[in-house]
Amino acid sequence: MSRNTESPVDVDEALTHIDSRGAKIRKEQLERTLSQLQADSELTADQRLAVERLSERLVDRLLAVPRASLQDAAQNADEETIETAMSLFE
């Protein structure tokens, strides 16, 4: 565990950081994909909704493990793991 003179890392802040990064990437990729699909043919409202839901599920699944690891780290007061996770999702 690292010894840091700064205040301890807040796990809620780390989780928010990870969720924000995931949401940003999801939005960027969703817009890109919908634009490409729309250029090829007209999307129905149902098709657009299906793509949006898919993007949400993918991000949720991909971030589930880092979120669980952060929650475990918080329970064990493992600031180093929390700091590492934050740096990985910058």
Rank of each mutant, 00 (worst) to 15 (best):
S35W: 03
S2A: 09
T81H: 06
I18F: 00
R57I: 02
V65L: 11
S35F: 04
E79M: 07
Q38T: 15
A77F: 07
N76V: 03
T84C: 08
A45C: 03
E31A: 12
L54C: 10
R48G: 12
E13T: 05
L70Q: 02
L70W: 01
V11R: 14
N4T: 10
S55D: 07
Q71N: 10
D78M: 09
L43H: 12
E80H: 01
R61E: 13
R53I: 06
S55E: 13
L49C: 10
Q75F: 04
V65K: 10
E31T: 12
R32A: 10
D12G: 11
T81G: 08
V59D: 04
A73T: 05
D46R: 12
V11D: 01
R21S: 06
L70A: 06
R53F: 02
R61T: 15
A39D: 10
R3V: 11
T84H: 08
R3S: 14
A39L: 02
K27R: 11
T16K: 09
R26D: 00
E79R: 08
R53M: 12
G22S: 06
A39W: 05
A85K: 11
E6I: 03
G22D: 03
P8N: 06
S69F: 04
T5Y: 08
Q36E: 15
A64V: 03
S55A: 15
L58H: 05
L54K: 09
L15I: 08
E13C: 05
P66M: 08
A85G: 10
S2L: 12
R61C: 02
Q75H: 06
A77N: 13
R53H: 15
L49H: 07
A74Q: 05
L63Q: 02
L70N: 07
D46K: 11
E83I: 06
V9M: 04
L34K: 09
D72S: 14
L62Q: 06
V65S: 15
A23Y: 00
T33G: 03
E79D: 15
E56T: 01
S55Q: 10
R32V: 09
K24S: 15
D12C: 05
M86I: 11
L37G: 11
A39Y: 01
A77E: 14
K24P: 05
R57Q: 11
